[in-house]
Simulated assay, not measured.
Amino acid sequence: MSDKTRNISVLLVSFNHQKHIRQALDALIEQRFDGTIELVVADDKSTDDTLTIIREYEGKDARFAFKYLDYSENLGITKNYKRGFAACTGEYVAVLEGDDYWTSPLKLERQAEFLRDHWESDLCSVNYFVYVEDSAQISARVAASQGYRLISARELIADNIVGNFSTCMYRRTALTRIPEKLFDIKSYDWITNIVIAKSTLIGFLEEPMSVYRLHGGGVWTQTPHIEKLKAQLDLLPAYDELTEFVFHDDFEKLGSHLRHVIKVSQIGHATEAVSQPVLRAVPAFVRYTPPIILMMLKLIVPVAVKDLLSRVLNRSRSR
């Protein structure tokens, strides 16, 4: 596809990723992409050898032009993404976080092809593996296939199938339309993609081509699970306002389900004798809660609640 390939930017976002950054960069260098690749390095003032390792890769592949953003100040993840997106000049912008990695050498090519052929989409994502490093558990986000699906903003609110920035490639023009106020609150991949999907569809390639790594060194992984759920719940009103209340009912429904999850999570501090009203509530949040949340919940809650969840999950899936 060399005559059809457009130039792209890869936004490499890193912070103290020395343990994992080589795997990310090796996978990036192995991409079979014929166009030019602008590599924008948005390091958020790492205090380890992350930047030293990144510099070792300069000159290894003539397709890559390294662009380093200022790393003298720790900006935090939201502001770091803001300046990273603004620094990218390619027609298409892919993201690679320094503790994730890609599993297919055709990832960039296939995403660029999809965006070139599908003007209904400003974002192309891929299926991915969730890798829980500490327990060596790995599983695909959805069943693998060679097909694709189109996802709306409402579907993404109900289930964040896109999962993380490392699966994403955007038209740069879509990134320039992101409202400034999105970067004034805690904004991660989920709300960024909802905002973009407000006026477009998301293309989701069902072949797994990326790995989302959950590890002890990650800021998200270190946050207690119940606190993650509460933080997400607290942000929903701001996200609702950010999207001009177009998806108000969808955010309200999600908020209701999150409150159910929080309630059931908290019973882990009680005895195994869970009341019947709570038992009746479990199937509802199992049915509506994104699989990634259930997966992480099962990793951290007490054994009694794990057993309860397992029984209900098995019962729900058999219906």
Rank of each mutant, 00 (worst) to 15 (best):
256 S>A: 13
211 V>C: 01
216 G>I: 02
28 L>P: 04
195 V>I: 05
121 S>L: 04
58 E>S: 04
32 R>C: 09
59 G>A: 00
227 E>G: 03
73 E>V: 13
289 T>G: 04
272 E>M: 08
130 V>C: 13
265 S>H: 06
260 H>C: 10
299 L>N: 10
165 F>P: 07
252 E>Y: 01
219 V>I: 14
211 V>D: 01
252 E>G: 03
176 T>P: 00
204 F>R: 03
98 G>P: 03
80 N>V: 12
104 S>H: 06
102 W>L: 12
254 L>I: 05
2 S>E: 11
77 I>P: 15
237 P>I: 14
278 V>T: 10
209 M>E: 12
133 E>V: 03
284 A>Y: 15
12 L>R: 00
158 A>S: 09
220 W>S: 14
144 A>E: 12
230 K>D: 14
111 Q>K: 00
96 L>H: 08
246 V>M: 08
4 K>N: 11
318 S>I: 14
169 M>C: 15
273 A>S: 11
100 D>I: 00
140 A>L: 10
15 F>M: 09
160 N>A: 05
255 G>Q: 08
119 W>R: 06
228 K>M: 13
202 I>T: 06
67 K>D: 05
292 I>C: 06
48 D>P: 07
316 S>T: 13
240 D>L: 10
279 L>N: 08
9 S>Y: 01
269 H>M: 10
288 Y>G: 01
37 I>K: 06
236 L>C: 12
14 S>W: 01
91 E>L: 01
43 D>P: 05
158 A>C: 06
4 K>C: 08
96 L>I: 13
156 L>C: 01
31 Q>N: 00
171 R>C: 07
253 K>M: 09
148 Y>F: 13
127 N>V: 02
95 V>R: 02
133 E>D: 07
124 C>A: 14
78 T>F: 07
270 A>P: 07
242 L>T: 04
187 S>M: 09
25 L>Y: 02
61 D>P: 09
318 S>Q: 14
18 Q>K: 13
101 Y>E: 05
304 A>F: 11
316 S>Y: 09
59 G>V: 01
275 S>F: 07
37 I>H: 02
313 L>D: 09
120 E>T: 13
44 D>M: 09
141 R>A: 09
305 V>I: 11
76 G>W: 02
12 L>F: 10
281 A>N: 10
115 L>Q: 12
47 T>H: 06
217 G>Q: 06
170 Y>I: 07
310 S>M: 10
168 C>P: 05
20 H>C: 06
287 R>L: 12
69 L>Q: 07
37 I>N: 05
218 G>S: 15
164 N>D: 11
225 H>P: 08
107 K>T: 08
147 G>A: 08
264 V>F: 05
287 R>V: 14
38 E>V: 00
66 F>A: 03
285 F>V: 11
161 I>V: 15
162 V>Q: 03
45 K>E: 04
301 V>E: 09
60 K>V: 13
278 V>M: 12
5 T>Q: 14
180 E>I: 06
127 N>S: 05
23 Q>W: 02
147 G>N: 07
105 P>G: 02
37 I>P: 06
